[in-house]
């Protein structure tokens, strides 16, 4: 029935895609955490113009399927970037870019929207009074954010950040549509020779199970550490 030998082989082939998956995830998070945070602050400050623009962007990303976003970005970004580079008179050949850059762009654009929402609701939870309290003890805005708001914000946002991260890892499985050499595509290409798709998907499932469980465990651990702040300032 099942070809267990192939299942085992394919498990390791799928495993070899983990670094790419993690790289895409980390880069996207690295871009979207600061940008999402800034977007969240922009939206709270109620400057109408930015609030509207960012609001439309967030609503579009949250309202459309990931795969459709990938289709759109993958077919439009190269041409857009090219005209952009021509405009700046940069002499870069955009088509020499590794396809992984498309993945960075797609998943960053997506995560920025998701994270800005997470930060926004977390900011609402800690923002106002805390900021005023910080001012009253003589901290500058920057200090207040760094010392008081961000640590608490992280505590509030951590469960959602954990969700967003696992969702992002899962979403990279759609990278096959961009020829991204991640877990799913590698395992599937290996399965094509003998049409062992069932085995391939079991292997892929196991790898994701392992990966996401580890990430969740990591977050839980970190969250415990962070809780210190919550009680520390309460």
């Amino acid at each position: 029935m099942l070809d267990y030998e192939f299942l085992l082989d394919d498990f390791f082939i799928a495993l070899s895609g983990v670094p790419i998956t993690l790289l895409v995830t980390l880069i996207s998070l690295g871009v979207s955490i600061p940008v999402g945070f800034i977007f969240a602050i922009f939206r709270l400050d109620k400057s109408r113009f930015w609030n509207k623009i960012i609001g439309v962007y967030v609503s579009f990303v949250r309202g459309t399927p990931m795969i459709v976003q990938i289709f759109i970005v993958y077919s439009s970004i190269p041409v857009l970037l090219k005209s952009f580079f021509v405009l700046l008179q940069w002499d870069t050949d955009i088509y020499k870019l590794n396809p992984i850059w498309y993945a960075f762009i797609v998943f960053s654009l997506n995560s920025i929207a998701i994270l800005s929402e997470i930060f926004r609701s977390a900011l609402i939870a800690v923002h106002r009074e805390q900021l005023e309290a910080a001012y009253s003890v003589g901290l500058s805005t920057f200090q207040a954010y760094r010392e008081i708001i961000i640590p608490q914000l992280l505590v509030v946002a951590m469960p959602n950040l954990c969700n967003a991260t696992t969702n992002l890892i899962k979403a990279t499985s759609l990278g096959y549509a961009m020829s991204l050499q991640e877990i799913t595509l590698r395992a599937k290409v290996a399965a094509n020779a003998n049409y062992n798709y069932v085995e391939a998907y079991i292997a892929i499932f196991l790898v994701y199970l392992l990966l996401c469980s580890l990430v969740e465990y990591g977050f839980k651990h970190y969250e415990k550490k962070l809780r210190f702040y919550k009680f520390g300032t309460a």
Binding site: K170, S173, T184, Y201
Partner: peptide, 15 residues
Amino acid sequence: RCTPSIVLLFMSYYG
């Protein structure tokens, strides 16, 4: 929670 939809879909359809 750890399974991408596309993997779940294929496991259901082929499995």
